[in-house]
Amino acid sequence: MNLILGKPKLLLMAMTGILALAFSAQAGPAEAASSSYTAQAQRAGLTATQAKALQQKVNEVADQTHGRQTGPNTVAFRGGNVTVAVPGEKYARDLRDTYTPAASDSCPYGNFCGFTGSAYTGTEYDFYYCGSYDTHRYLLFGGSWSNNQTKHRRVKMYGSDGSRIYTTPNAFYHTASGDWGPVYSLETCIPAA
Rank of each mutant, 00 (worst) to 15 (best):
L95Y: 06
D134T: 11
Y128N: 05
G178K: 00
P191T: 00
G142S: 04
T175Y: 10
T98F: 10
N81F: 15
P72F: 10
P108W: 01
Q42C: 05
Y173G: 04
A51H: 02
P182M: 06
Y109H: 10
T49M: 15
Q56Y: 13
T121Y: 06
F141L: 11
Y37T: 09
Y158G: 02
N147I: 12
F141T: 15
A193S: 15
G117D: 00
L95M: 05
C130D: 00
P72K: 06
R96A: 14
P87D: 01
G80Y: 00
G122I: 11
G181M: 08
F115V: 03
V155S: 01
T65A: 09
G122W: 13
M157W: 03
G80P: 00
L95D: 03
E60D: 15
T135R: 01
L21V: 15
T121W: 07
S163P: 04
Q26D: 03
Q55F: 04
Y109M: 04
S160P: 06
A48E: 14
S146P: 04
L21R: 02
P72M: 10
Y184L: 02
R137E: 12
V75P: 00
D63V: 04
A85M: 10
A62F: 10
P108D: 01
W145I: 02
A103Y: 04
C107V: 01
L46Q: 08
A20C: 11
S144W: 03
S163W: 10
G117T: 01
E187S: 10
V75F: 02
L95F: 07
G71C: 02
T47R: 07
E124N: 12
A14S: 15
F23S: 11
F127K: 00
